[in-house]
Write a protein that binds this DNA or RNA. Structure first.
Lengths: 205, 205
DNA sequence: CCTACCGATCGGTAGG
DNA sequence: CCTACCGATCGGTAGG
């Protein structure tokens, strides 16, 4: 009980962040009003300003907390696997599970690029890069058959493939009458892994 | 001279679309005002409504015309190559050139997903799917070593890889102090092609 | 195609 | 943390 000193304020702040996340993801930053955020959080407009100085500050907090790269980074750090294939598969699975659990996070990614012009990326990457580099290093040293690419390039291709999977999935979800089977994550991961490995030297030349 | 009958109106309309494209890409849909669009096009607010019924109609026209998938589709149709590798490389190069020429088109993609919730995708895909399917068919029938995936799945992986390349490039462009060499398109295309081909059967089993 | 205007809503605040 | 309000700006239109 005594431990919950400033808990109430923190709780309301978290509630506001969740409300803002929902609204921003649904309507974009400029498409969301402070009234909408307040309403979603069951607060009056004025109440918001006890927790955030401005609408922009809310967006900043939402992005630093909910940007998908920030959500995925710890998953990569936790990924397990003794071989290149098993580590890649586990990382991809964790990636998949994290986004599936909150698909709207992808919209935060887009909003940051368009409406913020990437203004928070430097701050975001400051904490991200070390963790991601570590994973890249782990991945790259696991297999001598890997193409001779810098670890961060391998990482970039890994991220591109998975981001592409989710973006195209979002795309296809909104289109009726598409052919049923449009591929699944395993197809992507197989292509990715095979592509990152050098072709076997089957002849002597 | 006589041929230019209704040309003036069409020219102003095009001018407005270009102005709207610039502003939407820079600030998002809700972040752009009719005044800004008018100003960029050197028009008064009221003048816009001689060409478009509403702000939403402008956005719709911008998306149907400038959505990157719509810009890339003809490039894929024009791509040449007698082998799987050469066709893939040519298509990727055309893709690359088209986006490089107008990187802001990517923002239209994002705006459509977030602020329009993909509302224009069905109409967009109606004209896109046949052309893209044709390319996918062409690609898939060129090489028996290809993984046994449906042509549209191959297409999806191709698109994912290239979209991922550009999105990560946009990402990295905004971050100072990144390692210099972060990979180029050729790396992506090599990984993509090798990944799409089945591994060589080097043993007898 | 422009000027001048409409009601509505915006982000934010004073005062309690 | 809410009520009631601020000036500014929004999308859109009437009238010419």
């Amino acid at each position: 009980m005594m431990e919950q000193k400033s808990n109430k304020g923190q709780q309301t702040r978290e509630l506001l962040l969740e409300a803002a996340l929902q609204q921003f993801a649904a309507n974009g930053y400029h498409g969301t009003s402070m009234r909408q955020i307040a309403e979603t959080a069951n607060l009056a407009v004025g109440g918001i300003y006890n927790h955030f100085a401005s609408k922009e500050e809310i967006l900043k907090a939402v992005i630093l907390q909910y940007h998908p790269l920030n959500v995925i980074a710890p998953e990569l750090a936790d990924a397990q696997g003794a071989s290149f294939e098993s580590l890649t598969r586990d990382a991809a699975q964790r990636f998949y599970a994290a986004i599936k659990a909150r698909p709207i996070l992808l919209n935060i990614f887009f909003i940051e690029l368009v409406e913020c012009k990437g203004a928070h990326l430097p701050e975001l990457f400051e904490s991200l890069l070390p963790r991601v580099s570590l994973f890249a290093q782990r991945l790259v040293t696991l297999d001598p058959r890997l193409r001779p690419l810098p670890p961060l390039v391998v990482m970039r291709i890994f991220l591109s493939m998975l981001m592409g999977f989710f973006i195209t999935e979002t795309l296809f979800a909104q289109i009726p009458g598409l052919p049923q089977q449009m591929g699944n994550l395993d197809d992507f991961v197989e292509v990715l892994m095979r592509g990152l490995l050098l072709p076997e030297q089957s002849g002597k030349e």
